[in-house]
Design a binder for these strands. Sequence first.
DNA 1: CGTTCTGTTGCGGAAAACCACAATAGCGCG
DNA 2: CGCGCTATTGTGGTTTTCCGCAACAGAACG
Lengths: 203, 203
Amino acid sequence: MTAGLVHIVDDDPAIRDALGFLLRSRGVRSTAWDDGAAFLDGAPAPEVACVILDVRMDGLSGLEVFDILRERGVDLPVIFLTGHADVPLAVEALKKGAFDFVEKPFNDNQLVDTVIAALERAAAARRHNRDRDLLAARMASLTPREREVLQCLVEGRLNKQIADHLGVSMRTVEVHRARVFEKMGVRNAVELVAQVGSLAPES
Amino acid sequence: MTAGLVHIVDDDPAIRDALGFLLRSRGVRSTAWDDGAAFLDGAPAPEVACVILDVRMDGLSGLEVFDILRERGVDLPVIFLTGHADVPLAVEALKKGAFDFVEKPFNDNQLVDTVIAALERAAAARRHNRDRDLLAARMASLTPREREVLQCLVEGRLNKQIADHLGVSMRTVEVHRARVFEKMGVRNAVELVAQVGSLAPES
DNA sequence: CGTTCTGTTGCGGAAAACCACAATAGCGCG
DNA sequence: CGCGCTATTGTGGTTTTCCGCAACAGAACG
């Protein structure tokens, strides 16, 4: 049983049923939506998922749905399905970050392989997002002064230099430094840079 | 005058001429090749450039030329031109990293804008490649022992811990440490991690 | 054999980092 | 006004980092 849920968004019930059956036969859970609006309004957000999205639908088009997803900051992998050969549309979708773009009729196994790969991408992205969110929360917990000291730390500066730069004593820098490490959950400046990445390029 | 050179690879002389003229009118240098093999054999490597590549040619196809370029480690941006609506081919090219995929007939201004964007990408990649090559050269200059010490350093370990781990004295670690910093052109462990990136994820 | 390179180690001294304990001041809020 | 938070600073002591100077050993190469 592959982890994650596949959202099938297509106004053709035959396609929805066929895809649902196909995915089930390969141990993949799915749920079907008969148009883009229904999907955007009803889909649960916080889990590993991907979307199979028909390009041409009444109401919102596939691309419009995709744009709305991205505007909402939803980064689920999206696999577009199309029954019409439209190269510029395919190019546009892929350049906007679509996971894949598949013409009907498609090869069943290949499509499911693509879906599984998309779910794996979604899982990886979820882990990455979690790390990123934790980092952001930690950064947000810093006081303004602590943030200034962190900036100097990741540039590799000595406490003495930081003290001069901020116009305070070295002891004060040491206090802020210790607080930064504590809040960021690191033990030293090396771990801090590894976590935060370099905020200042090396000259 | 936009920096860089555009390689026009197309077996149709009318297209080659028209594109050459179009680019010149926008201040972009170009050079034309009548087939993929000629381009691969004759194109000079070390400058900012991009490629406009026809998909369908006698001899090597556009995609085959692209594959060969990538196998050679050449990462010039490639803009494919095609006179045939072929969605799977477009999708394949883009997923392999093509810069763009354009159907004929195309909009002149849009194509040149795309070319200019591709040249900018090439320039940025050149700078990035230079940094990457310098880093690789520096890493290659390290002795085996120095490499081991570097690994421990970027994990944020104390000299005492590194000494225990490697079974040597702290003085030895200090010597290797100083040599690593010197060869990598950094002043301390923070700058080293910033340069090398974290080679060991924080637990 | 001499030279170069890599790896190792000790001594002693200086600089830098770290921190417990303690205290003060200013600001915002209920 | 009292409280909590942020920012600041000092003292004294410990640990860690840094390095000049010096020396030795083993391996590889011409």
